[in-house]
Computed example of a mutant assay.
Amino acid sequence: MWLFLFLVGQRIAELFIAHFNKKWMLKHGGVEVESSHYFLFIVLHTSFFFAVFFEWFLVRDGILWLSPLLVSLFLILQGLRVWCITSLGRKWNTKIIVIPDEPLIDYGPYKFVKHPNYIIVFFELLVIPLLFQAYVTAIIFPIMHLLVLMIRLPAEERALGGKF
């Protein structure tokens, strides 16, 4: 149960970080764009935790058999997640906010991949349910993430290209 509570707490903390970063970005000339699809992320991630909990706690009686491989993958993903957030610093957000004329971040994981956080989230949506033996959730939610990204990535590309 401690791992599940940690994950929920982590996501709530990230929403607070995003909120404070949004305020800072708007104060420094940032513009929030293409927000009409944001609710899809809320629905996806909220239902993800309900699905993991339902499948693990209610179907599997809360039994948790931690696999060393899955725990290792989880820890690597957490490190990569922190690397993404710290690389963007005050510019990290769950929403699309652009500060005009600011250069794009091109260091940290962004030196190698344009949208590393979405890759990491894809694998989290696979690995986290597997940690909880929530196999149906591990199949459904990475696919749902890819579907939401079909809307999100073009929106981000337009915003980053100044076409908003």
Rank of each mutant, 00 (worst) to 15 (best):
T86H: 09
Y135E: 08
G108A: 11
L73I: 10
V113W: 11
E55N: 07
K111Q: 14
F54L: 13
F39C: 05
N117W: 06
I119H: 03
L130P: 02
S47Y: 05
P100M: 13
F48M: 09
K95E: 13
F132N: 06
A138V: 04
L66W: 12
E124D: 08
W56P: 02
K114Y: 08
V136T: 13
C84D: 09
T46Q: 09
W92L: 10
K114C: 02
A51H: 04
F54S: 12
L58N: 10
Y107M: 05
F39D: 00
V82K: 05
L131Y: 02
L64N: 06
G62H: 09
L126K: 02
T86P: 02
F50D: 03
I63W: 09
I63Y: 12
V113K: 04
W92S: 09
L70D: 01
G62I: 09
K95Q: 15
L80E: 08
Y118G: 02
E55Q: 10
Y135W: 13
L77V: 07
L77I: 08
G62S: 08
E102Y: 14
Y118S: 00
L70Y: 04
F112E: 03
V71P: 00
D61S: 15
L77P: 02
V52C: 04
D106P: 00
P103Y: 07
P103H: 13
I76G: 01
V43E: 06
T137S: 09
I96A: 10
V43I: 15
L66F: 08
G108K: 06
V121K: 01
I63V: 14
K91E: 15
V136L: 15
F49H: 13
I99G: 12
A134D: 08
L75G: 00
P116A: 09
K95L: 11
I128P: 01
W56Y: 08
H115L: 06
W65M: 11
W83L: 13
L58E: 07
D106V: 14
L130I: 03
L131A: 01
P116M: 09
Y118A: 04
T137K: 05
R90P: 12
L130M: 14
T86N: 05
S72Y: 03
L44H: 12
F132M: 07
L69Y: 06
N93E: 10
L130V: 03
V98G: 03
P100H: 14
L125R: 03
L130D: 03
L104H: 12
F53T: 05
F123Q: 01
I85N: 00
I128K: 00
